[in-house]
C-alpha cells in the first residue's frame, strides 16, 4: 500500500473535531433539582424533534407523497368519525344545559348565543384536543413505538431513508391535510347538536332565533382566533404522540408506558393552551358585536 493512501486513511474524519468546544452536550443546571433538569431537557428534546419533523415536511412531500395520502386516508376512515361524533355529543349536551339554565329565566331564545360563545370559543377546542390526543396521538405512539421496538426505525436508517421524514413528517402532513375539514365539520357538528336539542326536541327556541343569535355573537376575528386555537389543539397532541412513539424503548411495556405518558402530557398541554388563549384573546376584550 502506498504511503499516500495510508495517510488518506489516517486523516481525521471530522476535520474540525479538535476545534469544537469540549462539551456541547446537554448541560445540567447544578442548582436546580433533578426533576427540573429532566423536564427542561425533555421539553428541549421534544422541541428539537418537533422542529426537525416540521422542517422535513417538504422533504416528506417530495419523497413519500403516497405515505402522506395513505395516512390521511387512515385518519379520515379511522378517526374522523369518532371525533365528529364526540363534538356532536358535546353540542347535544350544551343545548340541553342551555335550555335547562335559561328556561327558568325565560331567555331560551338566547340558546344560540350560549352555544356560539361558550361552546364555540373553547369547549370545542379543548375537547377536540383531548379526543385527538386519545385517538390520533396515542395511535401514533403505538404505531411508531412498535416500529421503534421492532428496530424498523433503525432498519429504515440503514436503508438510507430518513426515519423522521418517513414516519413522522408524513403523518404530520397528513394531519395538516385532514384537519381543516375536521375542524370545520367539528364546528358544524357542535352547532347542529344544540340545534337538534333546542329546536326540534325541546322547542326552546325557534329555528330563526337560534341561528340568528348563533351568528350574531361571532365574527371573523372570532373565527380566526378559535381556528388558530383548534389548530394548536390538534398539532401539539399529534407532535407529542409522534415524539413519544419515536423515543419509545424498553420493549412492549415501554410502548404502553409511553402511550399513557403522551396522553397525560397532551391533556395537560391542551388545557394550558386553553387557559392562555382565553385570557389573551377574550380576557380583555369580549369581542362582541353587542353589549360593547
Amino acid at each position: 500500500m502506498s504511503n499516500e493512501a495510508t495517510e488518506a486513511f489516517a486523516r481525521p474524519r471530522r476535520p474540525h473535531a479538535d476545534k469544537r468546544p469540549a462539551s456541547i452536550g446537554p448541560t445540567e443546571l447544578d442548582w436546580a433539582p433533578g426533576w427540573a433538569n429532566r423536564t427542561i431537557s425533555g421539553v428541549g428534546d421534544f422541541l428539537d424533534f418537533a422542529l426537525r419533523a416540521v422542517a422535513l415536511i417538504p422533504h416528506a412531500l417530495r419523497s413519500y407523497p403516497s405515505e402522506v395520502f395513505r395516512y390521511a386516508g387512515v385518519l379520515i376512515r379511522g378517526s374522523s368519525l369518532v371525533v365528529l361524533f364526540m363534538l356532536f355529543n358535546l353540542g347535544l349536551e350544551a343545548g340541553l344545559l342551555a335550555d335547562t339554565q335559561f328556561r327558568p329565566l325565560g331567555i331560551t331564545s338566547l340558546n344560540g348565543a350560549a352555544v356560539s360563545v361558550a361552546i364555540f370559543r373553547g369547549c370545542v377546542q379543548v375537547l377536540l384536543g383531548w379526543v385527538i390526543a386519545a385517538k390520533i396521538g396515542c395511535g401514533l405512539v403505538t404505531e411508531i413505538g412498535a416500529m421503534r421496538i421492532n428496530e424498523e426505525v433503525d432498519a429504515l436508517e440503514v436503508m438510507g431513508m430518513n426515519p423522521i421524514s418517513y414516519l413522522v413528517s408524513t403523518r404530520i402532513m397528513a394531519v395538516v391535510i385532514v384537519s381543516p375539514g375536521l375542524i370545520i365539520m367539528g364546528y358544524w357538528m357542535s352547532f347542529w347538536g344544540p340545534w337538534l336539542v333546542d329546536v326540534p326536541f325541546l322547542g326552546s327556541t325557534s329555528d330563526g332565533a337560534f341561528w340568528n343569535y348563533l351568528f350574531a355573537l361571532q365574527n371573523l376575528t372570532d373565527f380566526i382566533i378559535v381556528t388558530i386555537w383548534a389548530v394548536s389543539s390538534i398539532a401539539l397532541p399529534t407532535l407529542i404522540g409522534a415524539y413519544f412513539g419515536y423515543t419509545a424503548k424498553g420493549g412492549p411495556v415501554g410502548v404502553g408506558e409511553n402511550t399513557a405518558k403522551s396522553m397525560l402530557i397532551s391533556m395537560a398541554t391542551v388545557s394550558v393552551i386553553a387557559t392562555i388563549i382565553i385570557q389573551l384573546a377574550y380576557g380583555v376584550d369580549a369581542n362582541s358585536p353587542i353589549g360593547n
Binding site: 404505531e143 413505538g145 412492549p252
Partner: peptide
C-alpha cells in the same frame, strides 16, 4: 407483540371517552 400494549392503552382511552 410490540404494539399490543400500546394499542390496549389507546383503545382504553378512546373507548372510555366515547
Amino acid at each position: 407483540g410490540s404494539e399490543g400494549l400500546g394499542k390496549a392503552v389507546n383503545q382504553a382511552v378512546v373507548v372510555s371517552f366515547v
